[in-house]
Every structure is written in C-alpha cells, then in structure tokens.
Computed example of a mutant assay.
Amino acid sequence: MTLPGPDQFAAETGRFRRELLAHCYRMVGSAHDAEDLVQETYLRAWRAYAGFEGRSSVRSWLYRIATNVCLTAVRPRPMRVLPSGLAGPGRVAESQAADGDVRWLEPLPDAWICDDDPAAVVIGRESLRLALIAGLQHLPARQRAILLLREVLAFSAAETAEILGTTTAAVKSGLQRARARLSEVDPRPEDLLEPTDPRARALLDGYLAAFERSDANLLEHVLRTDATLEATPFREWQAGRADCIALLETQVMGAPGDWRLIATTANGQSAAVVYHRGRADGVVVLAATAAGVSSVVKFHDPALVAAFGFPETSG
C-alpha cells in the first residue's frame, strides 16, 4: 500500500487555503493570528492525512480542523475590539493610549484572500466587513463558529454539528442565540459600496486629498453628518462629522505634505496605507456608503504597511 505523499496532499488541500484564512480571521479578528492558525491547520491535516478515509469532503474535514484550532486559540484570550466596542464616544480632547490588556481588532488585506480564482467567491467580501468582524467578536466562540459555518459558509446543520462534534439541536439553538446577540451589537448592517464603485473611489480620493493637503474643509464633502472616527490604540472615539473634523484638524492633520496615503482595499472596503513624514504609519479603512463615509477606522501600526505589500518609506 502506497502512503499519500506531499504532492497529493497539496493537490487535495491547497485550493482551500485562502478561504480557510478568511474563516480563521472571522473567528479571531487578527490577520496575523489567522495566518498562524491556518499554518497549524495544515500541519494537523498533514499529520492526519494518511488516516483520512473520505467519510466527509476534504473541505469540511479541513474546516473541522481549522474551527477547532481557532476555538482552542481564542479560549484563553480576551476578545479583540475596536474603541467603539469599549465605551461610548467622547468629546474632542487629547486621546490617551489604551491599557496594554486591550487586544485590538486588525484589518485584513484583500490581497491575502482575493485573486482571479473563481473559488474566491466562497470567501464572501461582505462577511469580512469591519463592523461585522467587530460584532462577531462579541459572540461566545462556539456561537461565532456556528454562525459562520451556517450562514457564511452554508454548511448544513448536520455538517456543522459534525464539524463541531455536537448535535444538530445544539447547532440550531446556538445559531438562534448568535443571531440575537449579533443583532444587539450590530443592529442595522449598512449597505456599503464596493471599493470598485466610482462613488467609493471618489470618497476615498477626497479623504486622501484632505490629509495630503491638510485641508479639513474637504472632509465636509466626504463624511456623513453621523460619521464616526476611531483609531487604535486609543480608547477615545468620535461620533458626528463636526467632532470628527475638529479632532483631525486640531490634533492630527498637521502641515501640507506631512501625510501621504496610497489607496488599497481591506475587509472588502476602501482603504489606504498611511505614511507620516515619509515613514510607515498604519492603515485607514473607510465605510463608504451612497450618502458618504459613515465610519473611519485608523490602525496605528507601521508593520501593517508591509503586510499590505507596501514599502516602509514613501520614497
């Protein structure tokens, strides 16, 4: 009897890597953690591959491994959040760095999961939107897994029960509770424009121009009146266009030329990598709607610029 080799394993499992990365990201809210968890998933799958007897599809077998790897990973850790998940909005004031025990949500570069492969459709851009990912982190981990397996990945209740090692009845009740909890933390999901939509690109261009020219007035044409502004690693965040613009103008924008922003996409949304005085500074993600930008989330982390495939300096 010939044992399966690496080439056969790669042929059978490799095509699922991108969608497994998206799944792990939805579970844990961190792109880098998701990468590590996918690596662990494939390591475990390789070790068990010789005993895989095809009682389920390769895809559902991999999801069983990946989901349980994620459940083990999140069990001892506090959930990842955005500032808006900690407390209500504050007035314009000096922002203070959050305590070190807060674990922040991270953006996901679209390039990590999307290419010309038709199978990428399985990933589902809408299921990676920042607001949804933030909301998912408020669910107990098993409820989060049930919701994702059933409603994002379209596994049946029986398949989900097999993946999680539970009963169909437990899956159905868990899904009901997960839906109810998610509607509490994200009651009205917004209809966001695709980044390729000319309206979304115009809003992103306006935001980029406002920073690069240090012209806060341009933001009047970009932000909705009810827009929100938040940035990690700061607890304070703003709600309402006037407060958002006041904070940016007085504490952030500086002089013309201080900032350079280069368009990209993250979480299926319009985004930009950010440089401050020529050095990598982080990534900003916009929620673009037909009426304007409803939220701006800035991730202050220079390492993210490289993760999105850009150089450390703006040249």
Rank of each mutant, 00 (worst) to 15 (best):
G5V: 13
D7Q: 13
D7K: 14
R15Q: 13
F16I: 06
R17T: 14
R18M: 10
R18V: 03
E19N: 05
E19G: 00
L21H: 14
R26F: 09
S30A: 07
H32Y: 10
H32V: 15
D33Y: 01
Y42H: 09
A45N: 11
W46H: 07
A50E: 14
E53T: 15
R55K: 14
S60T: 14
S60Q: 13
L62Q: 10
L62R: 09
L62E: 12
Y63L: 04
T67W: 02
V74G: 11
V74F: 04
P78D: 02
V81I: 14
V81N: 05
L86A: 07
L86Y: 04
A87T: 01
G88W: 02
R91T: 11
A93T: 11
E94V: 12
S95G: 04
Q96H: 15
A98Y: 09
D99N: 12
D101W: 07
R103Q: 11
R103P: 00
W104M: 05
C114A: 14
D115R: 11
A119I: 12
V121Y: 10
V122W: 11
R129Y: 14
L130P: 01
L130E: 13
L132T: 10
L139S: 02
A141R: 04
A141W: 00
R142G: 03
Q143R: 11
R144W: 06
A145Q: 08
A145C: 09
L147Q: 09
L149G: 13
R150D: 01
R150A: 08
R150T: 07
L153S: 07
L153A: 09
E159W: 02
E159S: 10
L164N: 06
G165W: 04
T167G: 07
T168D: 10
A169Y: 02
S173K: 12
R177S: 06
A178N: 09
R181I: 05
E184I: 02
P187K: 05
P187Q: 08
R188A: 15
P189A: 10
P195C: 07
P195N: 07
P195M: 08
D197A: 09
A200R: 00
A202H: 06
A202W: 05
A202P: 02
L204S: 14
D205W: 03
G206C: 03
Y207A: 08
Y207W: 14
F211S: 11
V222R: 01
V222F: 02
T225C: 01
D226N: 03
T228F: 01
T228M: 08
E230S: 08
P233Y: 04
P233M: 02
R235E: 12
R235A: 12
A239H: 13
A239Y: 06
G240A: 13
A242Y: 00
A246G: 00
A246S: 06
T250S: 06
Q251I: 00
Q251C: 02
D258E: 10
W259K: 02
R260A: 13
R260Q: 15
A263P: 00
A263T: 01
A266W: 05
A272N: 08
V274Q: 12
H276I: 05
R277I: 04
R277N: 14
R279T: 06
R279K: 13
V284P: 12
T289S: 13
T289L: 09
A291R: 11
G292F: 05
S294G: 08
S295A: 14
V296A: 03
V297C: 13
K298P: 04
K298R: 15
A303Y: 06
L304E: 09
L304R: 05
V305W: 08
A306Q: 14
